[in-house]
């Protein structure tokens, strides 16, 4: 059976530390746009930690919610793309082929989660920052849409390694950068088609919900709701 990569985000573990955000930037050559562009709303973060206030002082509460590409099985960003730059892979990934993108930004409008980011200018890496660029990830040019790829370069590396060693890809042999860095293990990645995998088991948790699931985008990311403290249970 082909693999179906998926993720679980445990909102009860997530502390809002944003290690995932920095890790993704470092792994995927995500460009830094600078203050002026950021002020225009053009900052690029393939994964972001959304923050929602609830209530007023002194009863103010906060909810953190890491949001990345949901790798929808019915991805609205795909049919609208006139050049197949945004398309579905056999393993169910929503792939983005940069050199095919002509920059209509239609996919960005169609994506309900606003996780697609556009290169309004050519990215710059002040020398010698360019020496840090990950050679496994191509850099994007002006006019091209980009987004979370589930760190497809890591998936490919692992697959190639497995092939070379003539064996199956092992569970948890690799992780996307955000998952690997997440200090509280709030992010879990794996093969949803393998019922024994941790991600598959957690996806079935009663705390599980889909982000904007009502839109029928069939996301491959499951959010586990924050738990409540049940004093009795513990005493």
């Amino acid at each position: 059976m082909t693999r179906r990569w998926g993720m679980v985000v445990d909102l009860d573990r997530c502390t809002g530390c944003e290690a995932c955000v920095a890790a993704c930037r470092a792994e995927n050559n995500v460009p830094t746009v600078g203050e002026a562009e950021a002020a225009k709303g053009r900052a690029i973060h393939w994964i972001r930690v959304e923050r929602y206030w609830e209530g007023e002082f002194p009863d103010a509460r906060v909810r953190f919610m890491p949001v990345l590409c949901q790798q929808c099985d019915a991805a609205p960003c795909e049919p609208v793309c006139p050049t197949y730059a945004s398309h579905h892979t056999s393993e169910g990934l929503n792939a983005q082929i940069y050199n095919r993108c002509i920059g209509t930004r239609y996919c960005g409008n169609a994506c309900p989660y606003n996780v697609r980011f556009f290169n309004f200018f050519n990215p710059v890496w002040e020398k010698p920052f360019h020496l840090q660029l990950n050679p496994d990830v191509s850099v994007r040019e002006v006019g091209v849409m980009e987004k979370c790829t589930f760190c497809v370069q890591r998936i490919k590396r692992a697959e190639i390694q497995a092939q070379a060693e003539k064996r199956e890809l092992r569970e948890a042999e690799f992780q996307p950068a955000c998952v690997q860095s997440c200090p509280s293990n709030a992010l879990v990645f794996g093969n949803l088609n393998d019922p024994s995998s941790r991600v598959a088991q957690l996806s079935r948790s009663p705390r599980g919900t889909k982000l904007l699931g009502e839109l029928g985008t069939l996301p491959k990311i499951t959010y586990l709701e924050k738990g409540a403290w049940d004093g009795e249970k513990n005493s």
Partner: peptide, 15 residues
């Protein structure tokens, strides 16, 4: 020449 960014569009108002 300069890039589409010289227009005012931004995320999420791509059009």
């Amino acid at each position: 020449w300069a890039g589409i960014g010289v227009a005012g569009i931004r995320r999420p108002v791509f059009w």
